[in-house]
């Protein structure tokens, strides 16, 4: 196994995430895409950690922090989606364009 194969895989996942983020209209699906991107970042951390070992396993600790923050982000994100849905009867981002000229 070489390091690059994992990094390229992570890059592909990250690119999928960006595509979803830019294309999807439903907010829940956009959040799914963001999760995909976070996972790609985690793969990078873990891969680097397994090659360049650090005394305190910093890469894995960071991955754990990212997972934790992502969980919190999903909770808050879905609560916001719920609020938006209640107020506007829709969960599509392109209909949320009040902040325009």
């Amino acid at each position: 196994m070489i390091l690059s194969q994992f990094l390229i895989l992570a890059a592909a996942l990250f690119a999928f995430g960006i595509y979803g983020l830019l294309v999807r209209r439903n907010i829940v699906l956009i959040l799914l895409s963001v999760e995909l991107m976070l996972t790609a970042v985690n793969i990078n951390f873990i891969a680097f950690e397994s090659v360049f070992r650090s005394p305190d396993a910093i890469g894995q600790v960071f991955a754990i922090f990212i997972i934790t923050i992502a969980a919190a982000e999903v909770g808050i994100g879905l609560a916001i989606v719920l609020m938006i849905f209640r107020n506007r009867k829709s969960a599509n981002v392109d209909e949320l364009s009040l902040m325009r000229y």
Partner: peptide, 8 residues
């Protein structure tokens, strides 16, 4: 016109 309000 760039300020479309479209987040994406």
């Amino acid at each position: 016109r760039m300020q479309t309000g479209q987040v994406q």
